[in-house]
Design a protein around this nucleic acid. Structure first.
Lengths: 214, 214, 214, 214
DNA sequence: CATGAATGAGAGTTCATTCAT
DNA sequence: AATGAATGAACTCTCATTCAT
């Protein structure tokens, strides 16, 4: 007879949880996020979180996997549009920047996680982050092989890019507030939008890589 | 009757608390750190924490103030040894790097705090961080005025430096582990020590700043 | 399969908490009552108190609302049985007295609350107490209008009635103990039951109100 | 040599503690009052409270003894000025009223204590209160013997007087607030001062006692 | 698939009280 | 007589998690 009176849509519930969890974890961190609050946000019973994700850590892993997968796919798609390392590098930075700006939870979550070596989820973070780094590293190595980049240490440069962009995104509110209170002595770049910053960063990174040291 | 190994030494107790708190907060973050655990670590009754610092937030503020003050003083001292922007910049980076390496709680705490715009202690973080940035900014501006640096945006470059160095420090365990598990496909720079990294970063930053764009 | 002795019966749990809370608050006062003890009394986990009442103050409000509502309804019901102010007044006093005797927590809670102007819950106490006073006041005013009561100040007389009855109830144990220890010098009325006292009070109040001053 | 550099005046310290304790206990009740706050108020080290009074209960006893002694002496002094029961009764009520008004902690403390049968300090309260009641009782008994009072139950009348006056004092703030918010429907006697109330009560008590029942 | 009731452990914080100086 | 440091127990309240329906 299959009553199906009410559409109990498992997939929809799951997604609602994940999406709210992304917001919550990025705002309050792992320890600070409460499953109670998450349930309320998601308009679902608390028990459902455990039904779908087993426990808090499991949910967190799902969240991290989700966002790392998303950014990876975005960057990979962009990467396929280009065929030389210089453009690929540009694309990488620009895509990461605009994605981070559109989804500011990403920098927040990533920095938190990286700031304690993935204390919560070493393996997951790990595997997911490696794919992204492998791509970045590969671009630089090929550029080096082609003689257009010099003196390359991919790991350091990777964190240079991620560090700069992530911090510019997460500190935005702080910098805006500083600008309001401050005499104009120091410029906190409160107005810059992320695309300008990405452009600037690209320009600078090029100078870094294309020059041989004197 | 000389040694007088005092049991009830306020200053000593206070310091023990602060020092353990630095370790604890940097390891577990603000929300994740437990005052109970801290008391045990410090070999003191839990109530003493509140006796000295009023509440958890007060303790956290004291901790952040402490570490930011320390790094600021270290950098300021170094800065006074030089008299031209280029050397000053080098000194800044090198000092920050070696301090961060010697006191790895600094990057951990800083990244956590910056990753949510100083959610816990906006004002304190703020004031303390500004002094450091003001110094950095000043170095670059003077360099620009003297025609040795070009196309300078201090805020972005500040986060480039801090982002790179902090992330290299906090991800060290992660990178080491990656190196063990991995086929040699990607180099996670597991062996590099922080001074080499600082050297590399300095070299690169110089290229960034001394060149005019082509 | 009929009886269904429910274990997880929300309404029952809630009631158990409220009822024990009434006893506890009336015995120890607001500050002196411990939620831990209440949980134990109620054979429930401590967290359930907060699940049902949000916090201690919320519980206290619920308690006060409950008892004030009960006494109000009892008196109102009695009031409807009469149609002249004299009888209504009698009914008011008698009902209050026997209710207070049957539920001795009422005087205890009321006196405590009134003794600091409703420090804990000004608004709630307020609204609930006003209804009762409004009824009392109305009775007296109508009596005055009909010329059977004279020189009426309802507020004072209200507290005369409540003060006398409440104190006679709450001091009962004290007075009994006094009677045991004492030589018969002073009569603490240890034997009187509350109905006699109510009768006496009614007699006296009548003399108060029906006479014009000489 | 008797250095006596600093006047460490024990008696003064003791008094400061007692006086602040009266205020504190009357405002927050026994359980709600904190020795920490008391020490701060008294500008003394917390340990001194225990030096002078052994423990919280001891202090509370001292406080209750103090205020009951004071009111007893005030009333006794007044009583000696009169030589007939009617005037003595008037004096009792009037003195209690004005004392209670001048020292509003008395009603607050008394009602709290009486509202749980002297849970904290049965014996002390007891002994002190009995002297006062014995005086009141004696006045009435003599009046009855002289044929000017009729149908006397001292215990009840005692609480009638104390109940009325104490409640009028402690509820003053509540009644004032009610007067502000309310439409004029009910008169909470917010303006009456305590002497008017005492006069009114005396008038009414006289009617109570001088009449034989009809 | 979904709910609300229940739990036990632990959170931060305050308490009365004592110790050493 | 007076202080500040220290304690342990208790406090209110929140947490992640599970059970019964």
């Amino acid at each position: 007879m299959t009553k199906k009176v009410q559409k109990r849509d498992a997939e929809a519930s799951r997604r609602r949880i994940i999406e709210n969890a992304i917001a919550l974890f990025s705002k309050k961190g792992y320890a600070g996020a409460s499953m109670d609050e998450l349930a309320k946000m998601s308009d679902l019973n608390k028990a459902m979180i455990f039904y779908y994700f087993k426990n808090k850590k499991g949910l967190y892993e799902a969240v991290m996997h989700e966002i790392l997968q998303e950014i990876y796919e975005a960057i990979l798609a962009e990467n396929k549009l280009h065929d030389n390392p210089l453009e690929e590098l540009e694309g990488f930075i620009r895509t990461y920047a605009s994605f981070a700006c559109a989804h500011p939870y990403l920098p927040a979550l990533l920095l938190k996680e990286l700031s304690d070596s993935g204390a919560v989820i070493p393996e997951t973070l790990f595997a997911s982050m490696r794919k992204l780094f492998a791509l970045f590293s590969d671009i630089l190595r090929r550029g080096e092989a082609q003689g257009i980049f010099h003196d390359v240490i991919p790991m350091v440069l990777y964190f240079t890019v991620l560090g700069t962009l992530n911090l510019m995104v997460t500190t935005k509110p702080l910098r805006v507030k500083a600008a309001q209170l401050d005499d104009i002595e120091v410029d906190t770049c409160a107005e810059c939008d992320i695309d300008e910053i990405a452009d600037y960063l690209i320009r600078k990174i090029k100078l870094m890589l294309q020059q041989e040291e004197r």
